[in-house]
Design a protein around this nucleic acid. Structure first.
Lengths: 210, 210
DNA sequence: TCTTAATGTGAGCAATACTCAATTTTCTAC
DNA sequence: GTAGAAAATTGAGTATTGCTCACATTAAGA
């Protein structure tokens, strides 16, 4: 199993596009039943009703299939979050940061087969390039929510990195290790607290404990 | 490759213990050269100078070998952090939280082959039970540092989860994606800011933005 | 020294990821 | 329509893998 790259060949005819989506669909179904290690490419091809050769015409290796699913999945989640942010545009009464965290958590709490897909994300993330996690997109969403919430601190490369990773990975690991937390109000509260602390101007925070 | 479990058989004689540690040593060496997917059990056995049968006498499957290495590695890091915390016992001038974050970051910045080992951690974490990451140990260390820093907010299950995961995974992903950040003072500052915000009593934080 | 337990061996099996030469289907231009 | 090219599909086959097991060797205990 080699490091994953992009699609090997572009499907031009409708027939070919059908094959690709059938393969992805079959893989998703198998992921509901089995662990990722137990899923073989031959198995996927069989369930999709295409030959193993067709599979490798479009995916350079096994990992690429899982990466494709993970990317597709996370894109959907982010669209949900972005949509929720847009919808809450005029809603200034409630804190925009909270709005976003709520949408974010919800997108993971609602989705089926969370754990399996997150594990795919982690597993691919751990071998592939970082492309799988669109952290830039998250950072932009955060920045938008921030502007609306009235916080003024400018995010540097470093602070943006810490903020986005902290939020993202906390939700990801919660989805796997403690999914019940996603339903708790307190979980949302803690994330909001964290994000707001990272966004508040420095003067208001420093040296309160000394 | 099946889900990893514990060691298959306990090495009683010195000869056997030697075999086990030789296998782990050989695997570590291979990890410096190759990606985890390209390392085969036969390859490990060959390099360790033991037969493949001996390898499977002590490790139930391939993953178990990597888990063993990851656990061993992370235990060392935590010992370093714990040690640093202890040493700074009388040192009340500097914030205990900062002391801990610094030791934590340093343990990742100094270690050789960080990225490779973290990837092992992530990959195993993504299939195995959560045992690989001793988050409880981290939570305890944090609590210790907290008490010393004078913060008073009690940690619940939820807040402890968010705090430990946010800190741990931010450092982990930084080690892989942006190792240069580990050397920046600002990175430490941001983590300290985050932790202190999570530990400060609620009254001092709420509704500052409204 | 004899017995038993612990350790080590490696040929071999089932399963895997992936290739490629050959075939079938669709598109295009006349 | 029809011919030819391009796109898509096929699946037997290859190399390699994770792992087992019957057997050989070494050490421990009496």
């Amino acid at each position: 199993m080699q490091p994953p790259v992009k699609m090997r060949k572009n499907a031009k005819q409708a027939r070919a596009k059908q094959s690709v989506s059938t393969i992805l669909e079959a893989t998703t179904q198998l992921l509901e039943r089995s662990e990722i290690e137990q899923i073989s490419t031959n198995h996927i091809a069989e369930r999709a009703g295409v030959s193993i050769g067709t599979l490798y015409q479009y995916f350079p290796n096994k990992t690429a299939i899982f990466v494709a699913i993970a990317e597709q999945d996370i894109e959907q989640r982010f669209n949900l979050v972005a949509e929720a942010i847009e919808k809450a545009d005029g809603d200034l009464a409630e804190d925009a940061t909270r709005q976003m965290m709520r949408a974010f958590i919800k997108s993971f709490a609602d989705a089926k087969h969370n754990a399996a897909l997150i594990r795919v994300l982690m597993a691919t993330r751990s071998t592939a390039e970082a492309r799988t996690l669109p952290v830039d997109a998250i950072a932009k969403l955060l920045a938008k929510a921030v502007r609306r919430s009235g916080a003024t601190r400018a995010l540097t490369e470093t602070s943006a990195f810490v903020l986005t990773r902290a939020v993202l990975w906390t939700i990801l690991t919660a989805t796997i290790d403690a999914p019940h937390l996603l339903k708790r109000q307190e979980f949302e509260d803690e994330l909001v607290r964290m994000v707001q602390a990272m966004l508040r101007p420095s003067g208001e925070l420093e040296d309160l404990t000394q």
